[in-house]
Design a binder for these strands. Structure first.
Lengths: 247, 247
DNA sequence: CGCGCTGTTGAAACTTGTCAAAGTTTGTGG
DNA sequence: CCACAAACTTTGACAAGTTTCAACAGCGCG
């Protein structure tokens, strides 16, 4: 049923013929200007699709790495743990983004990836991807860019965690989400959070109470309207201003 | 004198015949088990060497990216800035480590890399590296591992910034340095810091005064002996214990 | 329909930051 | 090679921001 890869056991694995060439997220996850025959080869590479329910793990710390995953639809978080029980959410990922790059280094995953809503992913066997990227230069280069972008993103999070106060962190977080929803054709001003206050807090290096209080303050100040997980951004510029407020 | 690469102008560029095959750091920066002829091709790839004085920039935010850099000797920091003047040190790099991976994404560097002591680096033209890695599988895979390792390292920093208190951060920092010095054949218990308290603080998300105070506390508690930049670790286990102290 | 998970809010405690002053080291120019 | 200035470090007292603890409200799932 499920071969070498342990996490596949826990979930329904559906082998469906998927085609990158048809995927409406291809601008987000593929290089531009592929030749038709290159696209065809890529389609055969991305051969397996999988559906996860909310709360399911895509992979866990320690799982053998053999594929990277492209999110077709849905929403994920990744987190790392230390022995004493503390954990840190390292990112939230949505459609068109890749998961699993952390595993290349040691051939074991170093973080957990958990679906925050029912999600569809494409598994891309890594050694095949390396092989194909030796032949399709634009694929190779694109992949390098994707990894590099992840490094740059991480630097942004370090900046956030290292230098910003609670208000700034949360404002940055909302603006980032808004911008990513926009890029996917959703409203930039209105969306549902897929994660809890605790998960937001973990990502931002804050306690859940601080997140909650800061949301309330933003609401009082007319920057946003919050109703549980439903967020409406009323004053983008106000949020942006909060971020650059020196000190 | 200095071709396309703008930053080369500011520094003495010495084109020396360098050979990865002779480099005593090759276990740190190259894949294992290269064939002699592969090693030879790699040697021609890494054709330019450069020497930087303390305080010099290897590259700056906005510089065009066209090469990654391997540190032959010396010590660097990388940092990112935001408009209002705040900055965040994103890492300290030493011999055998790579710099510049952040630039692949947009073909512009997104952080500054600054020598903290006189240093020697090898420049590796990136497009040539991509070309060669299409032919030498182990080089390709090694490069992917290096990028992935950087992502994993960044997650560690996020954990540090997001969940640890001052003592834990500094303990983690010292232990990390110690371990990296050890890997390079230096003493694990005694070393000189190449960076100021302010730079340590920026990396750890603390103010310089907090760093200084925490060093003093570690000294009072007999964990280390500090004299300005000279550090002696007296009680490794004590430091390790500090890190896992719940709460 | 109720129990549990999630979110909100308050008050007090704690950690870290800020401001200030003085000591120490390093580097430069005479 | 010395002297002086600049940069870096240490330490104290106080302020600010965030966490902790606690109580309660609301929503959603079984």
């Amino acid at each position: 049923m499920s071969p070498q890869n342990s996490q596949l056991k826990v979930s329904t694995l559906t082998l469906v013929k998927t085609a990158c060439s048809n995927c409406n997220l291809r601008e987000l996850c593929l290089p531009f200007g592929l030749e038709p025959n290159e696209m065809e080869r890529l389609d055969t590479l991305v051969s397996s699709r999988r559906r996860l329910k909310r709360g399911e793990y895509l992979y866990r710390v320690g799982d053998t790495f053999d594929a990277i995953f492209a999110i077709r639809s849905g929403f994920f978080k990744t987190d790392v743990l230390i022995e004493d029980g503390r954990d840190q959410v390292t990112g939230f990922q949505m459609g068109g983004e890749l998961l699993g790059l952390d595993g290349i280094s040691t051939e074991q995953h170093t973080c957990n990836a958990i679906a925050l809503e029912d999600s569809d992913i494409c598994a891309i066997p890594f050694s095949q991807m390396e092989a194909l990227s030796r032949e399709i230069h634009s694929l190779q280069h694109h992949f390098h860019k994707v990894m590099s972008r992840e490094i740059v993103r991480d630097h942004g999070v370090m900046m956030l965690l290292g230098t910003m106060r609670a208000e700034e962190r949360l404002a940055a977080f909302l603006l980032n989400l808004s911008q990513r929803f926009t890029a996917r054709g959703y409203s930039h001003a209105e969306f549902f959070l897929r994660m809890t206050r605790e998960e937001i807090g973990s990502y931002l290096g804050l306690k859940l109470e601080t997140v909650s209080r800061t949301f309330s303050r933003f609401q009082e100040d007319g920057h946003i309207a919050v109703q549980q997980k439903h967020i409406r951004i009323l004053d983008v510029n106000g949020l942006k201003a909060l971020m650059n407020r020196r000190n």
